[in-house]
């Protein structure tokens, strides 16, 4: 829901990576006139306590998401595919490190 009213900068979503190898996670949002300022603001707003080593910003309006009504049909099919989970498989007792 990006506003383009004359007196409001567009909204951006901020994703922070907390350490090497960790995924970027959503931290929150902010307003900025453009990408460079969004990055700078993200650093100041969401990483005041060294929370991040890397930052992504993306215009809020560019995020496509599922809707809550999808919740059932969209995700349920994955829950019965238990062969995707390690618990599905049994190994002989006493074998380690598999």
């Amino acid at each position: 829901m990006t506003k383009t009213t004359e007196d409001q900068w567009p909204m951006w979503e901020v994703f922070l990576q907390s350490k090497q190898g960790a995924p970027h996670e959503h931290a929150g949002s902010l307003h900025a006139p453009d990408a460079e300022m969004a990055i700078q603001n993200a650093r100041d707003v969401y990483s005041r306590r060294n929370e991040a080593i890397s930052i992504w910003v993306v215009r809020s309006e560019d995020i496509i998401s599922t809707s809550p009504s999808d919740a059932g049909p969209f995700f349920d099919p994955a829950t019965d595919k238990i062969f995707r989970y390690p618990k599905f498989y049994s190994i002989p007792k006493g074998v380690r490190g598999v």
């Binding site: 900068w9 307003h31 900025a32 300022m37 700078q40 603001n41 100041d44 707003v45 005041r48």
Partner: peptide
């Protein structure tokens, strides 16, 4: 001028 800048200048 805007909250984001308040935070930046304080930093």
């Amino acid at each position: 001028p805007i909250i984001e800048e308040d935070i930046a200048m304080a930093n």
